[in-house]
Computed example of a mutant assay.
Amino acid sequence: MAERAPTERPDPGSARLAVDIGGTFTDVALEVDGRLVTTKVLTTPAAPERGVLQGVHKVLETAAVPPSAVRLVIHGTTLATNAIIERKGARTALITTAGHRDALEMAHENRFEQYDIGVDRPPPLVPRHLRLPVVERLDHRGRILVPLDEESVHAVLPTLDEHGVEAVAIGLIHGYANPTHERRIAEILAAERPRISVTLASDVCPEVREYERVSTACANAYVQPLMARYLTGLARSLRESGLLCPFLLMTSGGGLTTLETAVTAPVRLVESGPAGGAILASHLARELALGDVLSFDMGGTTAKLCVIDGGEPLHSRTFEVARSYRFKQGSGLPVRIPVIEMVEIGAGGGSIAGVDDLDRIHVG
């Protein structure tokens, strides 16, 4: 419940605002003069910024704080995560080295469930007919073995048009060691198809391990149009509402980043909302002198668990989105980003019960 409005107006510049968008609810918290004023509104999936603005106006009105008094806005969201889980991102294509377009579907040689002959992997975010090969090749040191054939790049453009592609991930073999070819392909796309958003694997994940690197690039491309529209629209609406202060986004690793970086690399926001919950849990654990804690964060769409070890949440460099087989490691889509290590299940306060293929009752 929101705190009642104070009788005195706080000093200008003393307030901080935090917004967290979940799949069901949007929470807004205002910290002013040592007090915390909160509100909760329904998330508006078709235009998430509407729910945010509704909550912001409500909490400012309750606290009798003018927008000009807010000196910082921090935002966390599960929109990117939910877009991947629910497969509601952009129509995405992958441009990769000829002969390697199936690496995204082959994934790892190992099986996450050795004895289940009917095991299913989550389908890639990019279907095979949109994984487009180009002629080029680098070695592991980044030396050019086969120069980029620009005609092969131009040859894929009609396919992008035919299928209404909105975003393209570019992930070439050993592109982490030498991004020259990836950048040249991006230049061609920018000149020939400027409406298409482009993600370079060498930018979002310049590391070895082609499968994880390309999977991360595809995830970034998949959510980029959605997140770019949302974040730029929200920033504009906040400015129009009088909130002229810095606007920062929480990352999946628990840090903060700028709007510009978030628009370019929205994959780093995949677990930004739950990361905020884990940071709060670790803060409370330290205040209460509790070294080892298990945090549980249930929303309307998903539930998240995090181990707090010695007062700090566990961190990882790899995260899997949308695990499809009893939440087993290896059954999701790998994303290679700094992340607070959590287990997330697709069941929350608003989940619906059903029966799966094995006639078992499940929720979510």
Score class of each variant (00 low, 15 high):
residue 287 E to M: 14
residue 313 P to Q: 06
residue 288 L to E: 15
residue 315 H to R: 11
residue 291 G to L: 06
residue 312 E to Y: 02
residue 288 L to W: 14
residue 286 R to L: 13
residue 310 G to H: 00
residue 306 C to Y: 05
residue 304 K to N: 15
residue 309 D to M: 05
residue 308 I to G: 05
residue 313 P to R: 01
residue 318 T to S: 15
residue 311 G to N: 01
residue 286 R to A: 13
residue 291 G to H: 03
residue 300 G to C: 08
residue 315 H to L: 09
residue 297 D to L: 05
residue 302 T to E: 08
residue 317 R to M: 10
residue 286 R to K: 13
residue 301 T to F: 02
residue 297 D to T: 05
residue 309 D to L: 09
residue 291 G to T: 04
residue 312 E to T: 01
residue 301 T to H: 00
residue 306 C to D: 10
residue 309 D to A: 12
residue 311 G to C: 03
residue 298 M to P: 04
residue 290 L to N: 07
residue 293 V to I: 09
residue 289 A to C: 12
residue 317 R to Y: 06
residue 313 P to G: 03
residue 286 R to H: 11
residue 288 L to Y: 14
residue 310 G to P: 03
residue 285 A to M: 10
residue 303 A to R: 04
residue 314 L to R: 02
residue 293 V to N: 02
residue 312 E to A: 02
residue 293 V to W: 00
residue 319 F to W: 09
residue 297 D to Q: 07
residue 306 C to I: 03
residue 291 G to F: 04
residue 319 F to R: 02
residue 297 D to Y: 01
residue 309 D to T: 05
residue 283 H to R: 12
residue 298 M to F: 04
residue 294 L to N: 12
residue 287 E to L: 15
residue 306 C to M: 10
residue 303 A to L: 13
residue 299 G to C: 08
residue 318 T to R: 07
residue 316 S to K: 00
residue 301 T to E: 08
residue 313 P to S: 06
residue 295 S to G: 14
residue 300 G to P: 01
residue 294 L to H: 07
residue 313 P to H: 03
residue 285 A to Q: 06
residue 302 T to W: 03
residue 314 L to Y: 02
residue 288 L to I: 05
residue 303 A to T: 14
residue 287 E to N: 14
residue 302 T to R: 01
residue 304 K to I: 13
